[in-house]
Write a protein that binds this DNA or RNA. Structure first.
Ligand SMILES: [Zn+2]
Ligand SMILES: [Zn+2]
Ligand SMILES: [Zn+2]
Ligand SMILES: [Zn+2]
Lengths: 161, 161
DNA sequence: GGAAGGCGCGTTATATCGTAACGGCACGGC
DNA sequence: GCCGTGCCGTTACGATATAACGCGCCTTCC
């Protein structure tokens, strides 16, 4: 389970796979993946970066839909609430989940140069957070773990440039 | 170095100590802790929780000042930029630093019940994040580590109620 | 069949968070 | 004196997010 985003990959496959997983998960859990929700997920899947809600809205409008902010926020709430997307707090923006279906406390790498957002394995990080919290007798319900920096590609580009 | 916020403590001492440290650090580094910046820091220090910029603004106005949003944001930028305060991304709000002067990558515990925000030791968490990032050859420049949950006091209150 | 309730969604309006840009003033260097 | 720099007042605006109301489509229950 590696974190895509920084590596070359068959992105069409990446998208269709994620959609299929979302459909299956919704079917299993009695969730309604309506056309709009699905479309918003597709838009997020289109890029391995975080998109603002209004950016998604612009895409919908460019497709001829007369959408309003609540439309997008409702779709995003559904997607985030059911683990098909995540909110990147640092950017006030949203990204498709790289591991839908699996229960996970996500952790993200955000490249300041190219904007790519990768979801990385977080078990040890989550463990460290829970450990530190436990010494203060604090019960952790939810975590925000986001690291900003420079991705390998951009670092190489810098070195070359 | 424990994380205050969840424990009883002499809060007046806590405030004056932090202000003294800020004054000393500014003096050492040639930074100007102006009256406004100092006042905003005092306001943040007043509570062990995160305050929105406009909430700070309301306090200033209640004191008779004709302040505008940029006034507050400029003071907050100064305080955050120089390590006297932190932004809690999850809340779009600001909290006074519990360890000013020391270089640190902060990690926070946010009680969903009472709103208290505590800054906790983060060395091991930061280490775990850097480690996970390194396997993807990602250079981390800045981290956001925030855990939401229930503090010991509120847990006790729940159990009692 | 019809009442009742849940859910998704359209729509309007508004709340909340944050910044751009301009100009004035004070201070220190030269 | 003149200029650069940093701080701040002020106006206006941009970006992010939600409240509230109502409609249509279901399903449930009788
Ligand atoms: Zn992909
Ligand atoms: Zn990059
Ligand atoms: Zn205190
Ligand atoms: Zn609490």
């Amino acid at each position: 389970m590696d974190a895509l985003g920084f590596t070359e990959h068959d992105h069409q496959h990446c998208i269709s796979e994620a959609l299929r997983t979302a459909e299956q998960t919704c079917a299993d859990q009695g969730l309604q993946l309506t056309a709009q929700r699905r479309r918003v997920l597709e838009i997020l899947l289109g890029e391995h970066r975080a998109m603002g809600a209004y950016e998604v809205l612009d895409v919908l409008r460019a497709e001829g839909l007369a959408a309003q902010p609540p439309t997008v926020y409702r779709a995003l709430d559904f997607l985030v609430g059911n683990g098909f997307a995540h909110k990147i707090e640092r950017l006030n923006a949203f990204v498709a989940c790289a591991h839908p279906g699996e229960r996970h406390a996500p952790a993200f790498l955000i490249c300041s140069d190219c904007g790519t957002v990768a979801e990385m394995p977080s078990r040890e990080i989550a463990q460290a957070v829970r450990g530190a919290a436990a010494t203060l007798e604090f019960d952790v319900a939810r975590m925000v773990i986001e690291a900003e920096g420079c991705c390998p590609e951009c670092r190489a580009a810098r070195a070359a440039g």
